[in-house]
Design a protein around this nucleic acid. Sequence first.
DNA 1: ATTGCTTCCTGAGCGC
DNA 2: TGCGCTCAGGAAGCAA
Length: 268
Amino acid sequence: MPELPEVQTIIDELKIHIQGRTIVHIEEYRKGTIQDSTDADFLPFRIKEVFRRGKYIVFDSDSEFMMIIHLRMTGKLIFNEGERKLDHVRAEVFFENGNSMLFHDVRTFGKIYLINRRSYDQFFSKLGLEPLCEECNPSYLLKIFKGKTAPVKNILLQQELIAGLGNIYVNEILFRAKVLPTIAGKDITKEQSRRIVESMRVILKSAIENNGTTISDYRRVDNKTGNFQNFLRVYQKKECSCGADIVRIKQAGRSTFYCPECQNDKKK
DNA sequence: ATTGCTTCCTGAGCGC
DNA sequence: TGCGCTCAGGAAGCAA
């Protein structure tokens, strides 16, 4: 499941393949994969730049159009298919040099959006701060936690507040910050929110350096795996390094893992 | 306004 | 071998 570090890794590798390429045709193999809100033919589409916003991959062109991809749970981008034809290819983007990029997605939640540049701001209007930006600091967190009865974990997962965190990294961030995921937002202290920000930055940067976390579905471009799974401390773990059993619960429909010893301020 | 549940989807893993 | 069940979860939509 690609979160910010995985999407960033994919973008860095994408650049090698699409630098200077022009899209001449897009084929949709599964209805609903492509959401086209443009009012004209956007082809040919010369790719000028690729960048990340939250978990979205944005392809900018030198025309009035943009292409945006969200991989959701199981989306992958593949340039070299290899010998055997793949199942679950939902769309294919063809370039002027005869090459193509496959959009592969088993669970079909992923989408390719085609938009006019003038609706860019509107497209991302509900997206929160980038977690690695200057403004995403302890006082911003205190502001979004204020008055909330929802648990801190659920708040950190809300893309309209902070854009890019998913289940794996929120679990890991709260472990490193020594904060219980079940604490209500309103009860998070200044000190705890300082630790959450520090952990968020350290963990995301380290995960990017390690090309993301490959647990089950996430793959880099061309199916390569990431390495950050080797550094996970609580996600899908049974025992903490302190010796305590990791507790597993469900929050907002997703698995939460935490260490009841290390993440409990009141103990010790 | 906030919160929490349901939905979309399919393959993997498990018990029998 | 195969059936039925549960689980994985990002984000939209909806109900309370």
